[in-house]
Amino acid sequence: MLKVNDINVYYGSIHAVKGVSFEVNEGEIVTLIGANGAGKSTILNSVAGLLKTKTGSIEFKEKSLLGTAPHLIVSKGLAMCPEGRRIFLQMTVEENLEMGGYTRKSDEADASLIDVFDRFPRLKERRRQQAGTLSGGEQQMLAIGRALMSKPELLMLDEPSMGLAPILVDQIFSIVKELNDAGTTILLVEQNARMALSIADRGYVLETGKIVTSASAKALLNDDAVRKAYLGG
């Protein structure tokens, strides 16, 4: 479904992503794990069109995404829930969700709104509240709900568990799993490698801009080097 081939991404003279290739097949949960600054967000932002790649190709459903303006990507079926949530704090919960469905016809967006409210009843209770007044966990649910409003075939999540209490982390991961069971393909970036690998089908390990290992999630969970570096031994 998504094929990233040998991309290189720079910030000025900083070479942040070095010849990275990976793919995500329909129906999978694929995770990219790696330490701070490994280049995970840079890769997702490149796929979403927010960053330009210097070389390489990115294909989604057999069509190149390179050169496509970022705002035209979501209607192709690819949504991203960015790092740090990036919800619109000064807009209400419902307005945030409406923005998530911006590219869709209003009746389709209305139907998605009902789905999202079913999945996240808390958001429904708080629909008229300013997003900035939500708790961290609620904000993360809003960020995910907002991304779901476009009814994506592939959902990219950048550290959805960041800054959340353990109980909420569990909840977020089980939501991700549910979404996948309901048919959404997932590309998940996480520092919480154990959790990510526990729900993923496959994983890639990223170190300073390069992919150093890729295997099934199960194999990675049992890989000595991975255990040492990312799973606390």
């Binding site: 991203m80 619109f88 923005m99 476009s150």
Partner: peptide, 17 residues
């Protein structure tokens, strides 16, 4: 609403389409 979204966060607004 789109104008408010852009004014608050351009990148996030683009991700919304």
């Amino acid at each position: 609403k789109a104008m408010r979204a852009v004014s608050e966060d351009k990148d996030a607004a683009q991700l919304m389409g």
